[in-house]
Amino acid sequence: MEIVMAFVIGILFMTATYLMLSKSLLRIIVGTGLLSHGAHLLILTMGGLKRGAAPILGGNAESYTDPLPQALILTAIVISFGVTAFFLVLAYRAYQELGTDNVEEMRGTQKDD
């Protein structure tokens, strides 16, 4: 199972890298989203994919799943949700102000302004 997850994560990172190398801002944002998905899956896999009861104190199950990766992922998801939302708003504002969503055209030296 870990092998499959490794492939999935690899494909996610690959796609994310490809998207982030493109010029359109929207694609880049989608790319960052995929990158964080990959990272979250990686945490889950690194914690070990075990089956077992819910990790509640005082239970009598034989094996427990590790609660920590799930807590980490939840936190990381919330953060990446916030950042992605901010990025989208920023991209929209930048599109209005600069009139382009092409990162190539956003290059510029400080002297332009």
Binding site: T32, V83, L90, E97, V103, M106, G108, Q110, D113
Partner: peptide, 14 residues
């Protein structure tokens, strides 16, 4: 929200 700020923020954020 000046132009240079928007432009540089995008790079910084990325």
């Amino acid at each position: 929200g000046t132009k240079i700020q928007l432009r540089e923020s995008i790079k910084y954020l990325l």
